[in-house]
Amino acid sequence: MDKLLNVSSAPHIRDNDSVKSIMEEVAIALMPATLFGVYNFGLYAALIILACIVSCVLSEYIYEKLMKKKLTTNDMSAFVTGLLLALNLPATVPLWVPIIGGMFAIIIVKQLFGGIGQNFMNPALGARCFLLISFSGIMTNFTVAKTTGIKNMIWYGLSGLNGYAYVDGVSGATPLALLKKGEEVDIISSFLGIHAGTIGETSAVAILIGGIYLLCKKIISIRIPGAYILSFVAYISVYSAFSENGFSIDYVANNLCLGGLMLGAFFMATDYVTSPVTPNGKIVFGILLGVLTGVFRTLGASSEGVSYAIIIGNMLVPLIEKVTMPRPFGVERRKHG
């Protein structure tokens, strides 16, 4: 009788996952896309990624110190936010853009709403949209310019160190913008990612590797990216079928590989804090994002629509969760009316 039995309330089964371990897995999964971005756009892209990460982590550290909150810089979440933000920037931005973006993501979008777990919007995407609206000229300029020197690098951006695959002097428009204009785009290069765009979005194959890694590690469930991509394909197919040229499999496949769709579906839409927790809610959320992205891409003024679709979806998450709350076993179905 000397054995003390531990009596506690549920939950009784615990897991060793922590915020830190999950964030580390996400960071590892982002590595293929990051490395490909650096390979594609050159070492200056690495500098942008570094600036984003440093800005995010420092902002979090300074804010939490000043507000005397618990330090969360060790849990890697600010690191992942910075990395995601960098992957969403063109490789030609001046270095002050990632710094301002990182500060906005962490301080305004994340910390002012209560820190990790409390933000209503994906911080990296919030910052990207802030930058996109604020500095639209810089943020949509994918032209590789030839400037050198530290001072020019900070103020005007630089691509003296050009990418290895993406050779210098290539004109600015992204293939997605060309596609929208009705021009032909090579599907193989779209899939591999050797074209203009933001640092991390170009290579569908690199992002898919990371996404499959996360799925295998059970960090994310297939529901959101699956529903997102399927509903997007369905929308684009219908749109393509009713367009002037008739249905074209090339158009659908290019739309799927180009732009931020893959990056958004696997890494942005699946953010734990800003996506629904209910299983059915995840599917509803994915379908909503797919349709919104399709509408923005086909009917909107810009050729891209993933970031706006996801942040609008983020704001509807509480409603989706309310509607799709699962019925516990044995509880009677609620009568309507």
């Binding site: 802030f130 609206i133 604020s134 500095f135 639209s136 810089i138 103020w155």
Partner: peptide, 13 residues
């Protein structure tokens, strides 16, 4: 001239 205006501030947000 070095200042790049953040257009979002004259818009609604």
């Amino acid at each position: 001239d070095w200042y790049e205006p953040a257009t979002i501030f004259v818009l609604a947000p």
